[in-house]
């Protein structure tokens, strides 16, 4: 069920994604991310339109990591930051990171987890059910995404929601 992709521009990096539903221990997961026990990006699945959106964020994070131009401390923090429309790191974590909710759906992003060991470790910590990545489109909260990115009616008409969001993410540092 784990879906892996190799980045076209960085063939030495593999991205794996796994979707968990009904996660009950959000604050514990956040603590373990902060103390470094979990080396992964754990994303609020409601804010993700499409896996492609996450891949774009990962690609940019890896790119900036290689240049040593990250805005945040870790490559995983950078993934969350890249997903966000603004330049406020805390706001990005709060919106796109693990929530405090009693039950939530999260998307776990791992780098270079070729043997699946990292996923096993993370699965041991996250209390929730693994569901197929395809369910993402049922989980996404379009209204919240449109509100956060401030997508107007005219911009929405240009293309599919994930394209609108991806283009915003890619051009966010163009000023």
């Amino acid at each position: 069920m784990e879906v892996s992709t190799t980045l076209d521009l960085y063939p030495d990096t593999t991205v794996s994604m796994a979707l968990f539903s009904g996660v009950t221990n959000g604050s514990e997961v956040r603590r373990k991310i902060m103390d470094g026990t979990i080396a992964a990006a754990v994303i609020n699945a409601q804010m993700v339109c499409d896996p492609f959106q996450v891949l774009v964020a990962v690609n940019k994070a890896v790119h900036l990591d290689k240049l040593d131009k990250k805005k945040t401390k870790t490559v995983f923090g950078e993934i969350l930051f890249n997903l966000s429309p603004g330049n406020n790191i805390l706001a990005a974590y709060q919106k796109f990171g693990v929530q405090d909710a009693e039950s939530q759906d999260v998307l776990v992003v791992l780098l270079n987890d070729l043997q699946g060991e990292q996923l096993q470790q993370v699965s041991g910590i996250i209390q929730g059910t693994r569901i197929p990545l395809e369910s993402l489109k049922d989980i996404r909260d379009e209204q919240q995404i449109i509100k956060l990115y401030k997508i107007s009616e005219s911009e929405r008409s240009v293309g599919r929601l994930e394209e609108v969001v991806v283009c915003r993410m890619a051009t966010k540092d163009a000023g």
């Binding site: 774009v56 107007s152 911009e155 008409s157 240009v158 991806v166 283009c167 890619a170 051009t171 540092d173």
Partner: peptide
């Protein structure tokens, strides 16, 4: 390069269909 990315974003906000930018490498 930056200018092009910026106007594409601006055009899309105004509702002009233009190819979606996936990634910009300023390096």
């Amino acid at each position: 390069t930056q200018g092009e990315a910026r106007t594409v974003a601006r055009a899309r906000k105004a509702g002009i269909p233009t190819p979606c930018i996936y990634f910009v490498n300023y390096q």
